[in-house]
């Protein structure tokens, strides 16, 4: 394998906090192996040196929030053989998609001294709403083990083992006691895709839904009915679904059912 050309990797940023890109740098020990296996051609967070496209694999972080983003993601797509979104912003619109439920003009007028300089779209949307996406890595932020798994799978031309089942299965396989049943703590786990590594439930907290909804239309209504039976009021129930993945279809629909 040593003589074959290493695949070219590019990492792109749109509207985001950079946390998902950092997950790549966070690979630490494995980072050397990654750098050996691929040519990191474009990764501004790591180096100003820019290798020219086209790229074999583009990792795209962030959501589309400006007209410039729309134009730029098209260019990234044209330069990329495979395009993988990393994180809740790129995959669902991120926390900044809370604007989608309000009037953006009101925010701009309130925040900026010269709103006329601000060119922003009314919504924050996922990359897949604009270009074809080959794979989506969930999470806020992504899990570095999932990122490494995806890279290993692509390099070795096999199917990535990225589970699509509920977070509950991570709890049960790890041996975490269900916080909803044993503590009456509301938890999004049953309607959320696994992959975080069981972070919150393992600390006795309900799942916040960083990895977004289960792919196959989760039964969010049954879960919110249970939340209500546990004594949560409508506003709190709505807020559970209005966080990092607020604009993911299943979560948006459920939170809108709790509009008063």
């Amino acid at each position: 394998m040593a003589e074959t050309r290493r695949p070219k990797l590019a990492v792109w940023k749109f509207s985001s906090c950079d946390g998902c890109q950092l997950s790549l740098l966070d690979c630490e020990l494995e980072l050397l192996a990654v750098a050996e296996a691929v040519e990191i051609a474009y990764f501004l967070e790591a180096t100003r040196t820019v290798g020219k496209g086209p790229y074999d694999l583009s990792l795209v972080e962030g959501s589309i929030t400006t007209p410039h983003d729309v134009q730029r993601i098209g260019e990234v797509r044209r330069q990329s053989k495979l395009l993988v979104t990393i994180g809740a912003c790129a995959t669902a619109g991120g926390i900044q998609a809370l604007r989608n439920f309000k009037d953006i003009k009101g925010f701009i007028d309130r925040v900026y001294a010269h709103p006329e300089y601000i060119e922003a779209l009314a919504t924050s949307t996922a990359i897949a709403d604009h270009v074809t996406v080959d794979f989506e890595l969930r999470g806020c932020p992504i899990n570095k083990n999932q990122l490494l798994e995806l890279l290993s799978a692509l390099l070795n031309r096999r199917k990535p083992n990225i589970p699509t089942y509920a977070e509950c299965i991570e709890c049960k396989t790890r041996g975490t006691v269900c916080v909803m049943v044993a503590k009456g703590e509301p938890c999004l786990g049953p309607v959320v895709q696994a992959g975080c590594g069981n972070l919150c439930p393992a600390q006795g907290r309900g799942c916040y839904g960083c990895f977004g909804p289960l792919g196959n239309l989760p039964n969010t209504a049954a879960l919110t009915a249970q939340f209500a039976a546990m004594g949560m009021d409508r506003r709190d129930i709505q807020r559970r679904f209005r966080s990092f993945n607020a604009n993911a279809q299943a979560f948006r629909k459920e939170s809108e059912a709790y509009d008063d």
Binding site: S152, L155, C178, N216, P218, N219
Partner: peptide, 30 residues
């Protein structure tokens, strides 16, 4: 199905449920 979350908790805690899946993993170098 209106009530079921399809989360799989019942099967995980069931002392007789035995279903498994198999996955192959590689390191980066293969």
């Amino acid at each position: 199905s209106k009530r079921c979350l399809t989360c799989g908790n019942c099967t995980m805690v069931c002392p007789t449920c035995f279903c498994t899946t198999v996955e192959d993993i590689t390191d980066l170098s293969g």
